[in-house]
Design a protein around this nucleic acid. Structure first.
Lengths: 193, 193
DNA sequence: AGAAACCGTTGACAAATGTCAACGGTTTTT
DNA sequence: AAAAACCGTTGACATTTGTCAACGGTTTCT
């Protein structure tokens, strides 16, 4: 179960992991299974764990006064599920994270992660790289959101995230893009003409 | 001129800087002055420097096919101006960054920054913290953009960023929020009733 | 001092997107 | 096997936001 994580770290750190380091990683990350619809994090709770997704699909969303869900992140294999604001500030989360498919995770607390980053150079490097990529991806998404029409946003997203399109239903994708499912349905219809 | 940067690093790293470290910082960061409207980065160029703003105000924006500007970031004192995607991937930037007021910067290349992070623990720590904060801020902005109406976005922004409201004209704020200046004008009028 | 550029506002209208209700076809649950 | 929940689509209509043109009051440039 930890093999996928080890491979992930080695790949992104571009550094080999010693067998001691690997043992430490295996000892620290705890396996966790979630059935579809189970919560990984609930609004109001402090986010105690980050989770590396070995298998499955999850979503992160807020719920507004009217009960409508607004999806802020989608996760599949090799993604990290986490509410960073809550876990670093130790404040109650504004978001829910739940499993969209049955999901297998490897979870770790913030303190454990800091410890591992200290002891394992490859881990620190991998995290730095993830932060970098994450910052770039956020920037792109933000830029697309404020600059483009719903149609262009969808096309851009579909072009680069085929995986998500296949595994999440349209109303989830629509919410992720900040539009309603009806609007997305009409955009797609028109796009295929 | 470097004093403000030294103070900034000490504050966010929560570690004192030795005088050798301070000397290294002073030797590495180059002062640069920009007159209002001068470019710090132009679309198509690779972003070679990150700039710490000692004094002044800047904006980062893309220009679409119709010539319309879309403002993705606003910067004032104690902010870092940089196109991360371009500077880390070494790709041509999709953005312009220019001075909105006469501005004084301390600039540094990516290679120099990596070197400083290696040699000065406080620098590495400060950067980590900035990444963290940046990630949280991006998340909030994104969440607000996809969940809220233009009116709520403006109110939220105005409540937390009084400084920007005061120093940038309304059409810049509007673009930053992803709406037109006319819409913002109407929102404000209605909001004061 | 005069000209030009910039800025915010307003009106009339157009376009994009949301809301609500309904439907038929799945898939899931019981 | 029946019932319930889920999913995507469509139509009619409402709301939000954008577009274009114009204006008067700055500020900036020369």
């Amino acid at each position: 179960m930890h093999a996928k994580l080890i491979a992930y770290i080695s790949q992104y750190a571009n550094l080999p992991l010693t067998s001691e380091e690997q043992a430490l990683i295996v000892a620290t990350f705890q396996p966790k299974k979630l059935r579809k619809k189970q919560y990984f994090l609930q609004e109001g709770d402090v986010c105690k764990h980050a989770g590396f997704i070995v298998k499955g699909a999850m979503r992160q969303y807020s719920v507004d006064e009217k009960g409508a869900e607004h999806i802020v992140h989608l996760f599949i294999e090799n993604y990290w599920a986490n509410d960073r604001e809550s876990s670093t500030m130790l404040t109650p989360s504004k978001y829910n994270i739940d499993a969209w498919e049955d999901t297998e995770l490897l979870i770790i607390t913030r303190a454990e992660m800091l410890d591992l980053m200290d002891k394992i150079p490859a881990m620190a490097q991998m995290i730095r790289l993830m932060d970098e990529r994450n910052a770039i991806a956020s920037q792109r998404r933000l830029s697309s959101t404020i600059s483009n029409t719903a149609e262009k946003r969808y096309e851009e997203f579909a072009a680069h995230h085929q995986q998500f399109i296949q595994r999440f239903p349209q109303h989830i994708i629509a919410s992720f893009l900040g539009i309603t499912k009806e609007t997305l349905s009409r955009i797609r219809k028109q796009g295929t003409k």
